[in-house]
Amino acid sequence: MTVWDRPEPPTRPVPLDRERIVAAAVALADEGGLEAVSVRKVAARLDAGPMRLYGYISTKEELFDLMVDEVHAEILPEEQARDWREALRLLAHRTRQTALRHEWLADLLGGRPSLGPHGLAVTEARLAALDGLADIDTVLRAVETVGAYVTGAIRREIANLRAERATGLSKHDWQRASGPYVTTMLATGRFPALTKAVHDGTDVDAETSFTTGLDWVLDAVAAKLARPPV
């Protein structure tokens, strides 16, 4: 029996339910990352004994599953997209925005699918965007491809944000501090492609980079959808 269909125990002197437990866990993770979340810490925030929580969750992994599903509710758009491309683009951007609000989510993306009601609704929205446009295997590979890009881009962006906080250096500060070393290495002539990228490439912000890469991935999906079946 999963955490999703296991009934909650009856209420006791300190009112508890999974909704309150998950809200407390999400708040702790937002403040200090996943390492700040434990059954003991969640119980302390709720002014309850840790053993009380085990009536609602069996393991910390179940708690993480509930947390992921809770924030997946923020990914679902209220508006109706005009076509499949807009639908997948909107879901991708909302996933990024949700991860930026809850950075710990990046650590849990890309594993097994979220089986909670909100996670299933997000998966349904992604699949439904392409429903009827190709055979189901093509739809699945397209959704997986877009998802892999989104997950990778989000993880890279959040890793950079964490590095900035850990070092106290912004991206541009880090580039300036690393400049002399990079200049010396490029002067060896061993890295001609990298030299061209450093000297001639355009530096863009994280959102522009995410949007550009996403559009390229969606272009590839569109080309696959337009190809007649063999």
Rank of each mutant, 00 (worst) to 15 (best):
R227S: 06
V71Q: 02
V14D: 01
V221A: 05
G116Q: 07
E86R: 07
T195H: 15
M185C: 05
R190F: 06
K224F: 09
G32V: 00
T208Y: 09
A23Q: 03
F64H: 12
T184E: 13
Y56W: 03
R156Y: 05
T151R: 11
H172P: 04
E157S: 14
T98N: 07
G179R: 08
A125L: 07
L133C: 05
P9T: 11
G32L: 05
T167E: 04
Y56N: 11
P10C: 11
T208I: 10
A129S: 05
L186S: 03
A220M: 15
W4F: 04
H72W: 13
T98H: 09
D205N: 12
F210L: 03
R112G: 09
A121W: 10
S114Q: 09
T138S: 15
E31I: 02
A226Q: 09
A206F: 10
V230D: 12
A206R: 11
A222H: 13
S209R: 15
D215L: 07
R141N: 15
S209L: 10
D215T: 10
L88C: 04
L127P: 02
I136L: 15
T123Y: 13
K60W: 05
I75E: 04
R12K: 10
T151H: 11
T184H: 15
P15F: 06
D215Q: 09
A206M: 07
D17L: 02
P117E: 05
R52I: 03
R12D: 12
A43S: 06
H172K: 13
R94S: 08
R40Y: 05
E103Y: 04
